[in-house]
Simulated assay, not measured.
Amino acid sequence: MAASSAKHDVFQAIADPTRRQVLELLVDREMPVTAISGHFPMSRTAVSKHLRILADAGLVKERKVGRETRYRLEPEPLQALQHWLDYYSRFWQNKLTALQRYVESDENS
């Protein structure tokens, strides 16, 4: 998932609803912290802390443009998460299919 040197993993990063909203804001465009902060009822410092956690997990990258720091989404860790979730989706689908077969075969007996 995330690099082994990361302080936070993807699961920790996306566990918080504010951080998930930040990721949604960054889907289509790069944004400065001041613009991101305008979407939340919290201080810029608090938003910066959320951005730091997302950066630690590899979900956002930052770059300096003059005095401004801009953030953009890095979707690769989310793709790794999706692969992990796909495995468990197939696992549960197989279990439910087996249960359905069992129930249907028991009804026909």
Rank of each mutant, 00 (worst) to 15 (best):
A46W: 10
I36W: 09
L59G: 02
K64G: 09
A57Y: 01
S43Y: 07
G38Q: 00
H50Q: 06
S48I: 12
V33D: 10
V47L: 13
R52W: 06
M31H: 11
G38M: 10
I36T: 02
T69F: 05
R70N: 08
V47W: 10
A57C: 07
T69H: 06
I53Q: 02
P41V: 10
S48D: 10
G38T: 00
A35L: 07
A35H: 03
P32F: 11
T69N: 05
R29M: 01
S48Q: 11
G66L: 01
V60K: 03
V47G: 11
R44I: 12
E68G: 06
K61C: 12
A46C: 04
E68W: 10
V33N: 05
P41R: 14
V33C: 12
M31R: 05
L54W: 02
V33I: 15
Y71E: 03
A55M: 06
R67A: 08
V47I: 15
V65A: 04
H50Y: 04
M31G: 11
K61S: 12
M42Y: 09
G38K: 14
R63E: 13
D56Y: 02
V33G: 06
V60P: 02
R67C: 05
K61V: 15
V60L: 05
P41E: 13
D56H: 01
K61Q: 14
R52S: 12
G58M: 09
R29H: 10
E30P: 07
I36H: 00
R44V: 15
M31L: 13
E62I: 14
A55K: 12
H39L: 12
K49A: 11
A57P: 01
S43H: 11
S48C: 12
V47D: 09
H39K: 09
R52L: 11
E68C: 01
M42D: 09
S48E: 09
I36P: 05
E30D: 13
K64S: 07
R29I: 04
I53W: 01
T34K: 10
L51M: 13
T34F: 00
F40H: 15
R63C: 05
R63F: 12
G58V: 02
R70L: 07
R52M: 10
R52G: 00
V47A: 15
L59S: 01
D56K: 02
R70S: 04
G58P: 01
D56V: 01
R67W: 09
I36R: 08
T45P: 00
P41N: 13
L51D: 03
K64I: 11
Y71V: 05
T34W: 12
G58R: 08
G38V: 01
R29K: 11
G58T: 15
A55R: 15
E30C: 15
G38S: 06
K64V: 02
A55F: 14
R67E: 15
K61M: 10
G38E: 09
R29F: 02
L51F: 09
K64Y: 03
G38D: 03
